[in-house]
């Protein structure tokens, strides 16, 4: 088991996939992180030297990921709502915000458009 940023990963997990498990860290960013630390794309977690592990953790702690990124998202929605914009109101009501019809097929909007959006 290998620790990065307080999360435990299996030794056989690809470093790239392990990085992508963090919220708001996608394939593009993970590729760049790998390049920055001279990690080849097929490296497994177990093969990472301890120095790189600490460097990765330090790098991740400076990034806006996980709860920071979620809070940013919620703040943006709250800001829209507090300004009283149409998009903010639609989010508060859990309805589509971009002019879609609401007669049917709004399950996605119902689950996602909330002021306290999960992510």
């Amino acid at each position: 088991m290998v620790f990065i940023f307080g999360v435990n990963f299996h030794e056989q997990k690809l470093v790239k996939k392990a990085l992508e498990t963090f919220y708001a860290l996608g394939p593009q960013t993970s590729d760049r992180i790998l390049a920055k630390h001279f990690i080849h794309p097929r490296m497994k977690m177990g093969a990472l030297p301890p120095k790189t592990l600490t460097a990765l953790t330090a790098e991740l702690s400076t990034m806006t990921i996980e709860s920071d990124a979620r809070r940013l998202l919620q703040d943006n929605i709250k800001r829209l709502r507090d300004m009283g914009t149409y998009r903010g109101r639609r989010h508060a009501m859990g309805l589509p915000a971009r002019g879609q019809r609401t007669r049917n097929q709004i399950e996605t909007a119902k689950s996602l458009n909330q002021v306290e959006r999960r992510g």
């Binding site: 001279f38 990690i39 080849h40 794309p41 097929r42 490296m43 093969a47």
Partner: peptide
């Protein structure tokens, strides 16, 4: 094809690996 690990050689210009 980037399937084996690499590391920079310090003090090389342009950098070698």
């Amino acid at each position: 094809t980037a399937c084996t690990d690499y590391a920079p050689i310090p003090g090389t210009e342009p950098p070698q690996y």
